[in-house]
Design a protein around this nucleic acid. Structure first.
Lengths: 253, 253
DNA sequence: CATTCTGGTTAACGCTGTTAACGGTAAACG
DNA sequence: CGTTTACCGTTAACAGCGTTAACCAGAATG
């Protein structure tokens, strides 16, 4: 098969219905309905078995939708960040994180689908899709930009656990790492650590496994964010500025 | 109805089958099967509608099982901790946390059921059951015991966000707080913050949303644990001792 | 002894994912 | 151009799910 292939009529049609499947499925979820093959098919005016020409099984549909939701959500994060100048990645990261939290709180089902959806390690297809995660790439990139400016410390490759070193040199997680010099891959360790912290609070809040008042006052989230400013080299006036920015972003309707 | 009521024959029978339902349901889950009313009923030699004499709906069964799993898992944490002296709560906490992680990794489905099971805030029944969470009580208690010894700093009530102050004075989250003096309730803030950090790593690892190699080397988990030693007043020799202890516990088959 | 309440049954509804067998139509080929 | 093939949809059906309604035996209660 040729590498560059002008799409034939059938291929275009196929891709169109494929896209429609994913679109309708996400709509279904947004409308508060249950995500099911039959419901998707019905909304498209088709019968359920027809979908098996496009997806192998239900789980694959879920994964596709999760990927799509992640992409759409990330677009929202980017918009939130874009209200700050491009040469201020720290401000952009703060805004993006607040947007991430807001999204997780307002769409808990979608959040659970994307970020709490259990992944069996054997299934390589799902891993690949996870690796492509858009939000992961975006956050990594912001962190990298911050480092370019503040030069915050990160572990040298030799200081890392050999297994971890493998992981940061040839990452499986969603991270935009190609453009990070090999010697600087210790940055990904900082990324993983900070992501783990953010993930903890936001998942706790989104799934409702904490006091509703803690969610209402964004105190736990804010404290976690503030704690991560200094390790990223954001100190002094910069820190004060970002803390105020966080407050403002959290207060936004 | 009398407050103290000697259980009649029928009541005993009822409670027996009630217990059997929960027991069989957890067994089902442990056997790798799907948790369903029909499966539980079948395994008990009953028909599914009969279960509605005991549980209101499927979700209630799930919640009951989650509570039971949490109780059983906590028993495991206690056992792991009991290998260290009772007057060394820091060592016990480290051991319990490692056991918690091991449990989350070896039984991801159970973990997701207990700790990632979304909770709709309106549903007060589920909230109540969550508040009773055994593991939460246990971890809070260990943290309190550590504070009794190290006296690590915690925010005064006046320094807390008023909403958070309400939350720590009259907690809805699973925490053994009755015996903590009102003025010392800021301790719960430390508990929430450290729990959020632990929850983040462990959930990330258990759901598979991170590089498998990161899981294999427990580096992310260990780093998170180590970072929380100093805030708990565990410094110097104590810290070194506990880091070594962590390594040993992680290495345990 | 008569009544009521409890804890089970069967039947049924509407939903789910999934497979098998079939058919029409569009593309590809001789 | 005619024939074949492959694609994309259909219907029918299976096994399973949560849940409700109607019913019924038996135990506890008056």
């Amino acid at each position: 098969m040729p590498a560059l292939h002008q799409p034939t009529r059938r291929e275009r049609q196929r891709e169109a219905t494929y896209d429609e499947i994913v679109r309708v499925a996400t709509e279904l979820l947004t409308d508060g309905a249950e995500l099911s093959l039959r419901a998707v098919a019905a909304r498209m005016g088709m019968t359920a078995p027809a979908l098996y020409r496009y997806v192998a099984n239900y789980q694959e549909l879920v994964d596709l939708v999760a990927f799509e939701l992640d992409k759409a959500a990330t677009q929202g994060f980017i918009e939130a960040a874009s209200r700050y100048p491009a040469d201020d990645p720290a401000a952009q990261l703060c805004a993006a994180c607040v947007a991430f939290r807001r999204w997780a709180l307002s769409k808990p089902r979608e959040f659970a689908l994307v970020f709490a959806n259990p992944i069996i390690s054997e299934d390589s297809d799902r891993r690949e899709l996870l690796t492509l995660s858009t939000s992961g790439h975006y956050f990594t990139d912001l962190l990298y930009q911050i480092w370019e400016r503040t030069g915050f410390p990160f572990p040298a490759l030799d200081d890392l656990d050999p297994i971890v070193r493998d992981a940061v040199l040839n990452p499986l997680i969603p991270a935009k790492a190609e453009h990070i010099a090999t010697a600087d891959r210790g940055l990904l360790w900082v990324y993983m650590r900070s992501w783990s912290a953010l993930y903890g609070v936001v998942t706790l809040e989104s799934t409702g496994h904490c006091d509703p008042r803690i969610i209402q006052s964004a105190a736990l989230f804010k404290a976690t964010m503030v704690d991560w400013l200094e390790p990223l080299g954001l100190v002094g006036d910069d820190k004060a500025r970002l803390v105020a920015l966080l407050d403002a972003e959290i207060a936004r309707g």
